[in-house]
Amino acid sequence: MRPKQGPPSSRSDRLFRALLRAFPFDFRTDHEREMAQTFRAQLHEARREGTVAAILRLWLEAIRDAFTTAPREHLAILRQDIEYALRALWRAPVFASAAVLTLAIGVSAVVAVVAIINAFMFRPLAVERPHELMSISTRDGHGTLPHGLSFLDLQDYRSQSAVFTDLLGYAPRTGALDAGGGAERITFEMVTDNYFSLLGVVRGFFPQQLGAEEAWVDDGGGDADGATSACSNSIKPLRPLTPMA
């Protein structure tokens, strides 16, 4: 016996099936054929009535289903999946703990890597016109990798170069800072006097003249008002000043 064949696929049938694609895959697998069949019967009846309003109402309801019922079904299936997953995890607490821990480590690692990549490669520096900044380094017989300039070279470039608006210099250092609670090892930078003005940022720490340079020391965000600061590494004791506004 041959199974009954449905009517040949009409344009309205194809359009209705296209609307059904808004429904979740599982839902369509279970009900698509029946829904199309039901819609075909309803459409046939509406045409028999002969009113455009009945046909229009049917199509409007089909469209409304695609925008209201279909999302609700997606949510229902999602909720069902989440409940199932939670029940499964609750039944196997050791596995659940291992899974959560693994996920936490994995997510943390990814977040850290993305944050570093973002900070160094994508996010512009928090200065004025970061796109205009250039980094100058020296490549000579002292090593295969580019390295920094001497302070004298920097002074020469600064006074003789017409290519750049201005040049600034910086040199990272480590030292010890005693802000009253004992010496604390810190990292700081010696920078040239135009460092903050050229970058267009507000100076917030303790400047001290060191010949042609100035040094600013960050004690790690602490409040050092009135503290007697001292740095080793042949830098003279720093004189705390009121941060500039």
């Binding site: 819609f39 409304r64 289903d65």
Partner: peptide
């Protein structure tokens, strides 16, 4: 008047 989508949901 239920639509096919509402009914099968």
């Amino acid at each position: 008047l239920l639509s096919a989508g509402t009914l099968y949901a």
